[in-house]
């Protein structure tokens, strides 16, 4: 049933957020440290294990995949509820930050592609 998948997803998020809060508390910070990231890793590990055991049938998986497919619209809603009016004043900062990060990371692609390369790894797709 779809609710099993959604419940599993909810459990992962709650557990991740709890772990993030605990981590924040331990580091003396009033906040959540990487709860979402921990939840993602937890979901990957749990679903991988469940799939191998055959304990995650298609309908249950659909209960997770629906939320995965709704992620762009949720981000659109998030964008629509931000304080853009105030951010407009800092326009060039946003453009420059995005541009420099893109250029710097892009320039590193060929460098990393050369690390530990072997012949059959690099064959172009047919």
């Amino acid at each position: 049933m779809a609710i099993y998948g959604t419940a599993l997803l909810s459990f992962c998020l709650l557990a991740g957020l709890l772990a993030g809060k605990l981590l924040g508390w331990m580091l003396g910070m009033d906040g959540n440290i990487g709860g979402v990231g921990i939840a993602m890793l937890l979901l990957v590990l749990l679903t991988d294990r469940l799939k191998r055991d055959g304990a995650l049938p298609e309908p249950s998986e659909q209960g997770i995949l629906f939320w995965s497919s709704i992620y762009i619209p949720v981000i659109v809603a998030m964008a629509a509820s931000q304080n853009v009016r105030a951010a407009i004043h800092g326009g060039p900062a946003a453009i420059l930050a995005g541009l420099l990060a893109t250029l710097a990371c892009c320039a590193l692609v060929p460098v990393y592609a050369r690390i530990g390369r072997s012949q059959d790894d690099d064959s172009p797709l047919p």
């Binding site: 997803l9 909810s10 992962c12 998020l13 991740g16 957020l17 709860g35 979402v36 939840a39 993602m40 890793l41 979901l43 990957v44 679903t47 998986e61 997770i64 995949l65 629906f66 939320w67 995965s68 709704i70 992620y71 619209p73 949720v74 981000i75 659109v76 809603a77 998030m78 964008a79 629509a80 509820s81």
Partner: peptide, 18 residues
């Protein structure tokens, strides 16, 4: 604001890990 708020946003992002 509710749809794009922290609750549903984090939920959907975690789901993409699937």
């Amino acid at each position: 604001g509710l749809m794009g708020g922290a609750m549903l946003r984090d939920f959907a992002i975690v789901a993409t890990a699937m």
